[in-house]
Design a protein around this nucleic acid. Structure first.
Lengths: 342, 342
DNA sequence: CTGAAAGCGCTTACAG
DNA sequence: CTGAAAGCGCTTACAG
C-alpha cells in the first residue's frame, strides 16, 4: 500500500513542484504561479506554498522549466581570453548588468581560436540561449552560419560594427590606434615602430589606425612594423623591443598594441640601459593598473572595458525583452593617457 | 490537409530528434542512439541519421536531455575573483581537464562575498550540476547547508582540507606563509612586517604561517601586522607600505600576502627613494608574470594554480564517474622564488 | 540491432 | 484567483 512501491521509477527523489503543491494543498499550476508570479495569487496561497518550499527544500528544476517554457534564461558570453584583464573587466560589467535576474551566464574562453569558438558555440547553443555576447565583429564562416541559424539575439563587444543590423558596443580600435600614433608624431617622433602580437581583429585595426596616421604624415615604412602571432606577454614584449631595435636601429618610439607588451618592452629597456622615453619612447594600449605605477609611468589608451560589458549586456537584455535597440552602435570612446614613457 | 494546421502548438519550430528520425526512416530511439552511442547502431543507420542531422541543422536540446536522463553534464565552478590572475589560471586548468567532453562549465564569480556565493549557488543548483568545484575549504552556514542538501560531488581547490571525506587539491597556505617568513629570517631580517588585504581564508592562513615562523624565532610583534579588508591592488600595496613604515619605522622587510600588493609596495618605494632590498626587503606571493621582470625582480612564492585547476577537475570527473578518489588531499606544493627584492 | 510506451518536472493555453 | 489537461524534446527500461 506504500506510495513508494512503484517499480520502475525514474524520479530523482528530490522535491518537485508537485510535491510542494500537494503539501500546500493547491494544484501544481497554482504552486508554479505562486513562485513565478506571486502577485497573481492570494496571500494565503503564497504563504502556504512558501512554507512548503522551505520545508521540502525545494529547488526548481531549470531543465524542466526551460523545456516547458522554451525560455532558457541563459546568456552566452564568448571572450578570447581570461588571462587578459581586459576581458575579465568586460565580464564583470556583464555580471553587474545581468544583476539580480535569474539569468545564467555561460562564459566561454575561445583562446583566440576559431576552432575553439566553434566547439564552444556548438555546445552552448544546445542550451537554447536567450542571447549571445561576442567579443568580435566577425567570425569564421561556420560560426557565422551557426549564429545565423540559431536566430538568437546577439550583441558584439569591443569594436564598432558597420554591417546593417549588427549591434555593437565598444569604441573604434582604428581611431584609437590613429590617435596614439598622432600623439607620438606630435611629440616629434618620426621613426615610430608598431609592435603587434596575437594579431586578432582588434590588434589589426589598431595597426590600421597606426598606418593611416603614419601615412598621413608621410612617415609610413613597413620596416617599422613587427607583427607576430604569439599571445601577448611581458616576456614577448621584452623580446620584441629587441627585435624592433635590431631591424630598425633608428626607431625612436614604439607603439605596443597592448600594455603587457609595453611593460615588457620597458622592463627590457631598463635592463639594457636604454632610457625611456629619452632614447626610446614606449606606449601601450588598455591602461592596465601597473601602467600608472611603473617608473616611468606608461602612456597608453584607457579603454572603457567594464562599461562595454555593462552596456552590451543591458542592450542584449532589452533585445531579449523585445524592445527596439536605441542605436545599432554604441560608441563608448577611449582616452589617451599621456604619461612619462612617451 | 497541411501538417502545420495544428492550432495550439508549443513546438519551437526547430528540428527535433523526432524529425531527424522521421527523415532517416528510423524511430526516435534509434536516432538517439545513433548520436549518443554510435557503436551500438548499424553503419547504415548511423549514416542516414548523420545525414538527416546535417540536412535539418539539428541541434540537440540540452534541457530535454537533462530532464530525461537526470544528468545535466554541467559542472559548477565558484571562484572569488576574475580580476585575480590566479583564478583565471585555475579556470584554464579546469577547462583543459574537462577538455573534449560535452561538459558545460558554469563559472561563478563570488567576489569574495558570502551573499554572492549563496545567490550564485542557488541559481546554479537549479541546473542540477554533476559536480562542483570550490575555491575554499569552508563556507557560510547557509551555503554549506545548500551544498550538503544537494548531494553533488564536490572538490575544494587552493588549500588542503583536513575534514574527513573532504576532497581538496592545492597546497598548504600555512606552510607557504611560514616558508617565506623563514626565508626572510634566514636573510637576517628581524623586524618583518606582514601586509594582508582582502582577508579571505587563504590570506588568513598565510598570516598564520607568518606568525608561526615569527614566534618560533622569538620575533613575533603584533605591531608588525597590517591587515585590511579591501581588495588587493597595486594602489593599495603602495598605500599600505607607507602605513607599515609609519607604524613600525624599524621594519626591515615586508611580506605582502600577494604579488599585486608587493608590486605596489615596490613602486612606492621607488617613488619615495627607499632602496629595495637594501633599506626594505619586499616579497610577495603567487609569482605573477611581472614579478620576474620588474627591477628589482620580486621574491615570491610560485603557486601551481593551473595544475590545481587541472587536477581538481580531473578528480571531480573521476568522482562523477563513480570512481573512488585515490587520495582525499592532493598536495601540489609551492616554490619559493628567491629574486632581487628580498 | 531496433522500437513502442512511458515519464522526467515544469509551463502553456484554456476554462471557470 | 485557481485548476485539469496536454505538451516541451529527450532518454530509460523493456521487449523482441
Amino acid at each position: 500500500m506504500s506510495k513508494t512501491s512503484t517499480i520502475k521509477s525514474r524520479a530523482s527523489g528530490k522535491a518537485t513542484l508537485a510535491s510542494v503543491a500537494a503539501r500546500a494543498g493547491v494544484s501544481a499550476m497554482t504552486a508554479s504561479r505562486a513562485l513565478s508570479q506571486p502577485e497573481r495569487v492570494s496571500d494565503a496561497v503564497r504563504a502556504r506554498v512558501g512554507l512548503a518550499v522551505a520545508e521540502l527544500g525545494y529547488v526548481p528544476n531549470r531543465a524542466a522549466r526551460a523545456l516547458a517554457s522554451a525560455q532558457s534564461n541563459v546568456i552566452v558570453v564568448l571572450v578570447p581570453s581570461l588571462s587578459n584583464a581586459v576581458f575579465t573587466a568586460v565580464l564583470e560589467g556583464i555580471e553587474d548588468a545581468i544583476g539580480s535576474g535569474n539569468y545564467q551566464l555561460l562564459i566561454g574562453n575561445t583562446r583566440y581560436s576559431d576552432a575553439e569558438e566553434e566547439k564552444l558555440l556548438g555546445i552552448y547553443l544546445q542550451s537554447n540561449p536567450d542571447g549571445i555576447l561576442l567579443s568580435s565583429l566577425s567570425q569564421s564562416a561556420r560560426v557565422a552560419r551557426m549564429l545565423a541559424a540559431s536566430n538568437v539575439p546577439l550583441v558584439s563587444m569591443m569594436d564598432l560594427g558597420s554591417a546593417p543590423g549588427q549591434l555593437s558596443v565598444g569604441f573604434s580600435q582604428f581611431d584609437a590606434g590613429r590617435a596614439m600614433t598622432r600623439y607620438l608624431i606630435g611629440k616629434g617622433h618620426r621613426r615610430i615602430g608598431f609592435i603587434g602580437a596575437q594579431l586578432d581583429e582588434r590588434t589589426l585595426r589598431r595597426a590600421d589606425g597606426y598606418r593611416k596616421a603614419m601615412d598621413e604624415a608621410g612617415l609610413l615604412d613597413a620596416r617599422l612594423e613587427l607583427m607576430v602571432g604569439e599571445p601577448s606577454t611581458i616576456a614577448l614584449g621584452a623580446q620584441l623591443v629587441q627585435r624592433m631595435l635590431a631591424q630598425a636601429p633608428d626607431c625612436d618610439a614604439v607603439f605596443c598594441c597592448n600594455d603587457d607588451l609595453a611593460h615588457g618592452a620597458i622592463y627590457q629597456c631598463q635592463r639594457r640601459g636604454i632610457k625611456v622615453p629619452e632614447q626610446l619612447a614606449v606606449c601601450g594600449f588598455n591602461d592596465l593598473p601597473a601602467s600608472a605605477w611603473m617608473t616611468p609611468s606608461v602612456t597608453t589608451i584607457a579603454t572603457p572595458r567594464y562599461r562595454i560589458g555593462f552596456e552590451a549586456a543591458s542592450l542584449l537584455l532589452a533585445l531579449i525583452k523585445g524592445e527596439a535597440p536605441p542605436a545599432a552602435q554604441v560608441d563608448l570612446g577611449f582616452t589617451l593617457m599621456a604619461r612619462e614613457s612617451a
